Simulated assay, not measured.
Amino acid sequence: MLKKWFLVLAVLAGMVGLSGQTAQAASTTSGMGFSVKPVTHQHQINRAAGYFQLLVKPGQTERLSLKVHNQADKRRKIQVAPVSAYTNDNGVIAYKPTVKAKLVAKQSQFARLVSAAQTVTLAPNATRTVTFTVKTPSGHFSGLIDGGFRVRALGETTTTSVKKGFSIQNRYETVVGVTLQQRKQAVSPVVQVGTIKPAKVNGQLVALANVQNIEPALFGKMTIDAKVTNDANQTVAHHKQTDLAMAPNSAFNYHMGWQPKTIKPGKYHLALVATSGTQRWTVNRDFTITRAQASTLNPKTAMSYWWLWLIIALIVIVAIWAILRHRQQKQQ
């Protein structure tokens, strides 16, 4: 099943980025000291699911509750916040309170349909029920609205020493998923490619293809095989990746490592094939890399700064001329 019960995120302080992993319910409580369980809702489609999977109507107001249990022997502050689903650049479905996405309307972002985040203080081994109000969109919508509730302990981190002078601070988060739909019939995803451009990621030259899921469908087990060729039909970038997933109406930048050491301006061609189960999407697109793009991204050499060397040379020449002239005037 694509929708996992929980998503565990480890926020790494001192490093750039966010790393996450999906996990089953049994392992999400390990090391976190708390557990969370959704209270079964009357409009739940699959009552065996470990997340909210609701069949709703337009303009409907619902109350969703979660039971949060403090497993520790100390008082703790637990925050529960609504979050919306998106696809990160690793091709993984992730969640955050605000999603800046052109493919999904603001009224279709789950976090915007739910009441504000709540923080509760729990005594040792205590359980508290936290309830939120959800107002569904006033009009009809197809497919899924995907989101959830992020649960985390406030003011708590664990530090792992990696090497001398460097350590990682971990903060564990659990997301209880929520999907809203007005019909039980599934909507098929449609994959296309938006912008294609060169870039530099972590110091490495890459080609980025903005892969888009333009339908309100959640899907996974996707494989992408993509390559970029130049006008001589030589492969300059290629990458194949499996087990990707996409949130409804979302996009992510698919990275292809640039094989030459530099990027040359000119015309290029992207050939991309994406598959998921029996579905297959093929993209063939020409694009152009400008001289300005190549110049900005390519490693700088001494020749790249010829104008600076020219200025320095002129300064040296003027300085030598001034010194020699001063000596001549002194001798006279």
Rank of each mutant, 00 (worst) to 15 (best):
V56D: 03
A319H: 07
F110P: 00
M1F: 13
D89G: 05
L113Q: 01
P248Y: 02
Q293G: 02
Q109Y: 08
K227L: 15
S161F: 12
G177P: 00
Q279N: 07
G139K: 10
G266Y: 00
D286G: 13
K221G: 05
K240S: 06
T301D: 12
Q109V: 04
V134A: 03
P124H: 01
R325A: 15
L12T: 13
L12R: 12
T195C: 03
D286H: 09
V318I: 13
A226T: 03
R285C: 08
K100C: 01
K264S: 15
G59M: 10
R128D: 04
L18N: 06
F6W: 06
W321N: 10
R325E: 15
S161Q: 14
I196C: 00
V193H: 00
I311A: 13
A271R: 00
V190F: 14
G203A: 10
R327F: 15
T131S: 07
T28Q: 03
A85M: 11
F34L: 14
L7K: 07
Q42E: 15
R150A: 02
A186K: 07
K102V: 14
T131L: 08
Q181N: 13
W321I: 09
A25Y: 03
A226I: 01
Y51T: 01
I317C: 14
W307M: 06
A217G: 05
G257I: 09
T131K: 14
H238E: 06
V176S: 04
V92A: 03
I320R: 12
P137A: 12
T22Q: 11
A116C: 11
N230D: 15
Y268R: 03
S138N: 15
W281G: 03
S250E: 09
R183F: 12
N298E: 05
L113H: 04
N284C: 00
V162Y: 12
N233L: 12
V114G: 01
V162C: 12
T159P: 11
I263W: 00
T195R: 02
K200W: 03
L324R: 07
Q24S: 15
I323T: 12
I317N: 07
R75W: 13
H269R: 03
S108M: 13
T296Q: 09
G33R: 02
G177Q: 01
Q60K: 10
T157C: 06
E156Y: 13
H140K: 14
M303E: 14
I224E: 01
L18V: 09
Y172T: 04
V130M: 07
T22R: 04
V151T: 10
A101K: 14
M32C: 08
T61M: 11
V201A: 00
A123I: 03
H238I: 05
T242V: 10
F6V: 05
T179F: 03
R75L: 00
A251T: 08
I214M: 14
T40K: 15
